[in-house]
Write a protein that binds this DNA or RNA. Structure first.
Lengths: 212, 212
DNA sequence: TAGATTTTACCGGACGGTAAGTAAGCTGCA
DNA sequence: TGCAGCTTACTTACCGTCCGGTAAAATCTA
């Protein structure tokens, strides 16, 4: 019986993981600048100096969290989307998965890694920032590409794909600011509504009876 | 020749106004927490203590700016919208005017009072915050009401009005994060595209030939 | 198995820096 | 003379960061 390293219930599947988790929560609640290392330390249950045993700097902590947000986005939205050949199905998957991780995030504690990703890029070094922006552009390009494919297939309305992509992002990202779990709509319902609105605004109605 | 209190060109139609203007710019660029009173003072051309001759505290400064943003929204979006009886026209006007002030804001110096309004509510006292949130709800209610009227007139698709209103806000507010004046699209074009997408997603297509 | 040694995981406290805010005084104009 | 409109000089408070130390655990000897 060797590697026995479990703990009772709450924390302790690694302090570092705990620190990341708690820091993400606090950054999300108070904002990066307003959150102090002391706040994080207290919430973890150790001293400020103790944090520095695990983490090099506050900035690096922020970068790790933001990067984790991008990983999440990549694994749960981008990769599954790429697996779909049909552009309409892909677009639907993007909307469904992206809205899901946004709304799921706020479940446990009003905490959402993607919110930090969007709001706190200013706290990064230029090098870190440009790395994140590059990963974001990959996502933007995926959506734009998907829209272009829809256009080629004659299924897209006459809209600019850049504006369309950003509008879609706006709808999705704004979710984290207004959606409440105790509200009258379930996350599935909200996802369905957003899909309806977005696809209705972008896609040509499937030709039913009339033509001109 | 009495009240001669003009200056050459740039500032001095009132220091207070200048301070508000410059502070709004800097809050917008660096964020409320990261911006220091010294930054503002330097940009104005006086000392930090000089700022406190006009302004009671940093928080009050923030509140004034955010409130000014709400005034702008009210005068340029809400009031004109209320004057329109037809709900579709009203919705179009809301989109056009709101997007216009968002994009116009960034003209002079990458500065936009509505961005601060959306991003820096956390810096306010609870009392100030709830006052702002109430004014925001008035706007939300206006949009939701307009959508309900469209529904009554049979012109709205089968979508939830709350999700629809927030999705519209998301599209509009996200504008300030991605729109660049040196980009390939003019602000008028972007407004037109957004109108097309939003209305396409929300409104029933005007019955042309077919029915069922 | 026991003792020696190293490593891990922290704590107390300090350091340099910077922030908001203030007190008190100077200066030019009415 | 008085007051608006500042400035200089300062206080207080906190922030990120790090250093020195330490108790306990892990690891290595013998």
């Amino acid at each position: 019986m060797k590697a026995q390293k479990k703990a009772a219930e709450s924390n302790e599947q690694g302090r570092l993981a705990q620190i990341y988790y708690v820091a993400a929560q606090i950054f999300c609640e108070k904002g990066y600048d307003a959150a102090s290392m002391n706040d994080i330390a207290e919430a973890v249950g150790i001293t400020k100096a103790g944090i520095y045993h695990y983490v090099k700097s506050k900035q690096e902590l922020l970068y790790a969290i933001i990067n984790y947000g991008m990983d999440l986005l990549e694994q749960e939205v981008i990769v599954p989307a790429r697996a779909l050949a049909d552009p309409e199905q892909r677009l639907r998957a993007i909307i469904a998965n992206h809205s899901r991780i946004i709304m799921r995030g706020s479940v446990d504690a009003g905490y959402n890694p993607l919110t930090i990703l969007n709001d706190e890029i200013a706290g990064l070094t230029p090098a870190q920032r440009s790395r994140i922006l590059q990963r974001k552009r990959v996502y933007l390009d995926l959506v734009r590409e998907t829209l272009e494919q829809l256009r080629s297939a004659g299924r897209l309305k006459d809209v600019d794909t850049t504006v369309a992509a950003f509008s879609l992002f706006g709808m999705l990202l704004w979710l984290s600011r207004w959606y409440r779990h105790d509200g009258k709509l379930s996350s599935q319902q909200v996802t369905a509504e957003i899909s309806k609105i977005a696809l209705g605004g972008l896609l040509r109605p499937p030709a039913r009876l009339s033509r001109k």
